[in-house]
């Protein structure tokens, strides 16, 4: 594998062929802000916040660190005045969309943003596309980017509550500005987008404890599984809590029954 010689903010470092600038920067503890990047998803380079300057030939050019693959020896400047100024504008423009996001607020302080310049456009979404990409990887069709021109927004097909959602909550967990909510009410799980119910998923009832339950998917796990195969729709008849307890009981029985500890729990253990 060819090793590349990169000058990263004035420091000579080496990079692997094809490595992104963001990966290299993280390796060397150089912080580059990102909004739409997730290591588990293919880069979409939509927010442009990670823009840096790279010089491969004569002239510096602006590129996005999250998806720019290093293929030649180069010089990378991650924090030039031009770069900082562009990021400042991105944050100002997005803060006008989504003023309540702690993530953006923090960045606004870092970049000395002037939050009076742009009148609020309250849309509450920064169109980073993470939810749609996560959802696409999980179900392929619940959330997508819709709308013509600058009116682009996250939506379900035909703006109707979607039937394809599996209630995995990946979109909820991944949104950098926390704009997607999830509620479990009356035996159904609701995904709430722009204050509207985007999908309803009938939650199965636990045959063990009788409670409704939904798939609680740890994003890390979702991410790991995405790209390999789709998450299967929830079909187990026992809620995760009961499964865990029942498994514990089963294991307990196998190893400790001989000591007569589990006699009282007999009924529940059988139900599992």
């Amino acid at each position: 594998m060819k090793v590349l010689n990169i000058v990263l903010n004035g420091k000579a470092v080496t990079a692997k062929m094809g490595q992104t600038i963001l990966e290299l920067a993280r390796e060397h503890n150089v912080f580059i802000p990102t909004l739409c990047d997730s290591p588990a998803l293919e880069a979409a380079a939509m927010c442009r916040l990670c823009t840096v300057q790279v010089i491969e030939g004569k002239w510096p050019k602006f590129v996005t660190a999250c998806n720019f693959p290093l293929r030649r020896d180069a010089e990378v400047v991650t924090d030039s005045p031009e770069v900082r100024h562009g990021r400042k504008l991105i944050i100002e423009l997005l803060m006008a969309r989504c003023p309540t996001s702690p993530e953006l607020q923090r960045l606004a302080v870092d970049y000395g943003c002037d939050l009076e310049r742009f009148a609020p456009l309250n849309d509450d979404c920064v169109v980073c596309g993470l939810c749609t990409r996560a959802c696409e990887a999980v179900t392929g069709r619940t959330l997508s980017l819709a709308g013509r021109g600058v009116a682009i927004h996250v939506d379900t097909a035909f703006q109707k509550a979607s039937e394809y959602c599996i209630g995995c909550g990946a979109c909820v967990q991944i949104c950098p500005v926390n704009k997607i909510a999830m509620e479990d009410v009356d035996g159904e799980r609701r995904i709430i987008l722009h204050g509207k119910i985007a999908s309803r998923v009938k939650l199965p009832q636990c045959t063990s404890c009788g409670k409704h339950f939904g798939p609680v998917i740890d994003l890390q796990q979702v991410m790991e599984r995405m790209g390999e195969h789709k998450i299967p729709p929830p079909n187990a008849s026992v809620c995760p809590e009961c499964s865990r307890r029942n498994l514990a009981i089963k294991l307990g029985k196998r190893y400790f029954e001989q000591y007569g500890v589990f006699e009282d729990e007999e009924g529940q253990a059988n139900a599992g």
């Binding site: 380079a45 991105i90 423009l93 997005l94 969309r97 709308g147 013509r148 021109g149 682009i152």
Partner: peptide, 15 residues
């Protein structure tokens, strides 16, 4: 362009 941009990236859309 407001109509014809694809709208996906911040500078073009918001700009």
């Amino acid at each position: 362009l407001v109509e014809e941009s694809c709208g996906q990236c911040t500078p073009c859309r918001e700009g």
